[in-house]
């Protein structure tokens, strides 16, 4: 495996009964870069992310085959310690789902799962991750309030902080800004750009301009196939495939 590659996906197939959701996917996701996955609705982007942290295990109807290598470890073959494995990745979903706890406990719960129980350390880290997600200043006096009282934009940043709190190496984000206002979206984007020095980021988005702004690498998918992948300059500047051109031109989405 290449030194600069963090995730190597080989011959990944996902079936739901007879329908094939992902078809022979091969992707290299580079370390400490933002890889953006583009593609029309229903092409399998969310399913791909779910394969990466084995959330596909939750859906017995999905049959997954192939290889996903993370640091020379095929996670699809892992039998035990799926929990440890999931902690290598922070997940940010389309809409924020704060845990039914206080703001503080949303983060400290993630820390506890990571094995941190010391109160002083918990305290310090809660603050650290909230700062990293650009939320601390707004809510430092409201830590004991239920997380559900935050605005949606704040909740999404809380979920980002929670995802960082498991100390992952990878961040998986599934259209994280689609429910957010422009300011909150910008916050998230800026945070991602800052975070990529320490993390490998996989971002699904429908917003082409967002992809252009922050992507290093782009993967374009269509109906379960990877049509084209490469650096953002290559894919946006000089798309090779007809479907990519059409998609980037806004003809279908």
């Amino acid at each position: 495996m290449d030194q600069n590659t963090k995730i190597e996906i080989r011959d990944l197939n996902v079936f739901a009964g007879k329908t094939q959701i992902l078809k022979n996917i091969n992707i290299d996701i580079p370390k400490n870069k933002i890889t953006v996955i583009l593609g029309p609705s229903g092409c399998g982007k969310t399913t791909l992310l779910k394969c990466l942290n084995r959330l596909t295990d939750l859906y017995p109807e999905l049959k997954v085959s192939g290889k996903i290598m993370i640091d020379d470890n095929n996670i699809l073959a892992a039998k035990e310690d799926i929990y440890k494995l999931r902690q290598q990745m922070g997940l940010l979903s389309q809409r924020p789902y704060p845990l039914p706890m206080t703001i503080y406990n949303n983060i400290s719960y993630a820390l506890k799962l990571r094995g941190i129980r010391n109160r002083r350390e918990t305290h310090k880290l809660v603050m650290h991750y909230l700062q990293q997600a650009n939320l601390w200043d707004e809510i430092r006096t409201r830590l004991r309030e239920p997380a559900s009282r935050l605005s949606i934009g704040q909740q999404q940043r809380l979920c980002l902080a929670r995802g960082l709190a498991v100390n992952p190496e990878i961040i998986l984000a599934d259209e994280p800004t689609s429910a957010l206002d422009p300011i909150s979206s910008q916050f998230i984007e800026e945070t991602f750009v800052k975070l990529k020095h320490d993390y490998t980021i996989v971002l699904v988005t429908h917003v082409l301009r967002q992809a252009k702004r922050i992507a290093d690498n782009v993967v374009f998918m269509y109906l379960g196939d990877v049509i084209e992948q490469g650096s953002v300059e290559e894919v946006f500047g000089n798309p090779k495939m007809e479907k990519t051109k059409l998609y980037l031109g806004g003809t279908f989405n």
Binding site: L55, L58, L91, L99, L113, V166
Partner: peptide
């Protein structure tokens, strides 16, 4: 389902997810 996925993605076991979330 997403709430469950959120808890599991933090590394919680299924029983922890049920009990705590």
């Amino acid at each position: 389902m997403e709430l469950k996925e959120a808890a599991l993605s933090l590394g919680a076991t299924q029983w922890q997810t049920i009990k705590h979330v």
